[in-house]
């Protein structure tokens, strides 16, 4: 746990880590290998080719980066995903703070209600959502997508933040309030900095919601090419005659990169220790 682990514990830990890492990485490695293979196939029946780059070529990457509007799609996706992430954090942390800290009539009802609506199958709501966004004049715009994604993440983010706020001792905020902080101040200056690990998780969740979605993005922004997001843009290259798996895999690897960068940036906040010593007794 948190004290220095014994040598035996470390050996077990690294064994598990290495096996888990292989499990996590091999399918991705397989896709990377496919991205360097010419032709339209995702697979190879050559045994060595399943594990090592036997026939590597950069051709798929060259086509994706220079001949297709992949970079434009990624720019669009970045705009949508980052805005979704920020909006989701802003809206859900404040709601979660209120639900965790304030006592008001209908508080539990609201929490149950949020969870209840999440149980409705999303596929069936898609048509209605598209119609409402059209009514608001947000059809075929990135802002409409941002609205849909942000609202889509609200339930999870609010619940997750609420759970985290519940584990933070309330004494610090009470002390701040005695010193003259209002509810808004004690939220921004005391609770939020303490909740950074959960904020990082919420931000990551918002980013992934905007970055990885396929259905909403393809229904709400069917055209033109320059407006599309990365994932639907990538898959829109397929047509009835052929599915260019080599291009998909190469483009996919480029699309995954920003996610990893965002994660590398956010994972620094997955470090605790701020509350240590803040509350005694």
């Amino acid at each position: 746990m948190n004290r220095a682990p014994s040598r035996r514990a470390l050996v077990i830990a690294y064994t598990i880590l290495i096996f888990a890492a292989l499990f996590a990485f091999y399918p991705v490695w397989f896709a990377i290998l496919a991205s360097g293979r010419l032709g339209d196939r995702l697979y190879t029946l050559n045994f060595a080719g399943m594990f090592f780059p036997t026939e590597w070529s950069w051709e798929n990457y060259r086509v994706m980066l220079t001949e297709k509007p992949l970079l434009q799609w990624i720019r669009n996706s970045l705009y949508v995903a980052v805005t979704t992430s920020v909006a989701s954090v802003l809206i859900s942390t404040s709601a979660a703070f209120a639900v965790s800290r304030f006592r008001f009539y209908g508080r539990e009802l609201m929490l149950v209600f949020l969870l209840a609506i999440q149980t409705f199958p999303g596929v069936l709501a898609l048509v209605a959502v598209a119609q409402i966004l059209t009514a608001l004049g947000l059809y075929r715009s990135h802002e409409g997508l941002i609205l849909a994604y942000t609202i889509g993440t609200l339930v999870f983010s609010t619940w997750n933040m609420k759970g985290y706020f519940d584990t933070i001792p309330i004494d610090l905020e009470e002390a701040a309030m005695i010193d003259g902080c209002g509810p808004l101040d004690s939220f921004i200056r005391v609770a939020l900095p303490l909740a950074m690990p959960a904020v990082a998780v919420t931000a990551l969740f918002g980013f992934m919601a905007g970055w990885g979605d396929f259905i909403f993005a393809s229904v709400l922004i069917p055209a033109p090419d320059s407006m599309k997001l990365a994932v639907p843009g990538l898959f829109s290259m397929a047509n009835d005659q052929s599915v260019p798996w080599g291009y998909f895999a190469a483009g996919g690897m480029v699309i995954v990169l920003p996610t990893l960068i965002v994660f590398l940036f956010l994972q620094r906040f997955l470090v605790g220790g701020l509350t240590v010593g803040g509350v005694k007794g």
Binding site: L17, A20, A21, A24, F25, P27, V28, F30, A31, A34, L42, M208, W211, G212, D213, F214, A230, V231, F235, F248, A249, G252, I255, V256, T259, L260, F263, L264, Q267
Partner: peptide
């Protein structure tokens, strides 16, 4: 980062599921 990879590729769920 390595263990996070499967979630990172969820944007390519179709591709990875076929893999």
């Amino acid at each position: 980062v390595v263990l996070f990879l499967p979630w990172a590729t969820s944007s390519l769920a179709i591709l990875m599921a076929l893999v």
